[in-house]
Design a protein around this nucleic acid. Sequence first.
DNA 1: CGGGAAGTTGAAGCCAGTCAAGATTTGTGG
DNA 2: CCACAAATCTTGACTGGCTTCAACTTCCCG
Lengths: 242, 242
Amino acid sequence: MTTPCQKCPLRRHDLFTDMSDDNVQAMQRFKVGELTVDAGTPLLIEGSNSPQLFTALRGMGIRYKTTIDGRRQVVNFVFPGDFIGLQAGLMKEMAHSVEARSRMTLCVFNRSELYSFFRSHPERAFDITWLAAVEEHFLGEALTSIGQRTAKQALAWALVRIFERGSMIGLTNNRSMKLPFRQQDLADALGLSLVHTNKTLSQLRDSQLANWSDGQLTINDTEKLAAVAGVETGLVPRRPLM
Amino acid sequence: MTTPCQKCPLRRHDLFTDMSDDNVQAMQRFKVGELTVDAGTPLLIEGSNSPQLFTALRGMGIRYKTTIDGRRQVVNFVFPGDFIGLQAGLMKEMAHSVEARSRMTLCVFNRSELYSFFRSHPERAFDITWLAAVEEHFLGEALTSIGQRTAKQALAWALVRIFERGSMIGLTNNRSMKLPFRQQDLADALGLSLVHTNKTLSQLRDSQLANWSDGQLTINDTEKLAAVAGVETGLVPRRPLM
DNA sequence: CGGGAAGTTGAAGCCAGTCAAGATTTGTGG
DNA sequence: CCACAAATCTTGACTGGCTTCAACTTCCCG
């Protein structure tokens, strides 16, 4: 009993660009099933060669790389609507791992059909490239945060982006949203130590800028937080939904 | 008097995946001209909406973003064979600027023809997505370097990757290659201060690991340098050439 | 020959990392 | 439903890698 693409609950959100009925049907044919996993489950492993591609339908996760000396870099957070496994679909293998941080449901596609899908649906090929460009866009911003911003600015940036992303897909409730990540995840995303992340978060809390505790993120004034981060809000690029 | 794609000097390098004669001809038709610029010339500006796409044919450059408070993050270095402007081609605008660091020659394409090009050449659409995935791969590695590695490790990583990339397109001469970048460029790429970058470089020089001076990078033992960086060599992913 | 850009070197200070221990929450088996 | 273990979050103290400041050198180009 899987969700038909025609009734996909994600498509109605503003974040996603419009899709023709024809393309919706094409996605439905491309889709081979749904997968539900518990928090903590690895979906893709760095260096592996998964036969499947996914689109996150519900739940959140993290993308991360590990270094030889055992450190971990969280490359991005996975939200509903994110496409997972493109690298494995094109190059030989994944450059990072993906792990669920909450219970997740994913739409499953066959990697082997990707090329013929491209051929028969050039608009969708265009869209998938667009998605890759959006990801590149984000990674450039992340690089700038880690490289140029202080811990406080970087944290503010991350929380603003997470909250914006959440609000665009209906995950926010008034001024709050649920966040299943650990402080260690955010620390590893920003290249900060867990201790310093913790202390900086409580600083943001004390100054009423952002309150992330008990799995709940609350931001009263996004503009104020964005000003601390030194970024502009409302710039989340619209993207296609696969 | 532009270089015909049929005689493109880049295509013979191992770095690039094979291209069918048919696709070579398609590129020739897609190509509208060549552009030669001096060192220091801006090619694309962050936030702008260029009508043109480029492929670097000769010379090197940098991609960078600037923050509100005037800091700069070098997102990547541009080498011959790199495709420039994909973001502007798909999304509304560029997320970073591109600037020549040496005299450069670029193949020029019309952005407005991109979509119809995708439609008529699905293989090339596939390839361009591949390129985006390669970039994503690289940015993930860069993120890991900046976030998790020490200054010495990060510098070693950068020099190894630059040298590997150079050697795959015939820019190395024995154990050396020309590098037109400034120390400030590398510092901004790794989120380090110029002073510390300078001192760490001379450390690498003293320990015979890498010598970058007078616009020339010399690495005697790549494996040794890679060991310092904590990365593996020979992993430069093959990529399509546009 | 003057001036600016890039590279070099030394000294001082701080932001963030590491170490360590305790508090709180979550999970699990009896 | 409780007891114990493991994971996560907090907090304090100390340390050090890197930044900043500042001055000087070298190189290049008009």
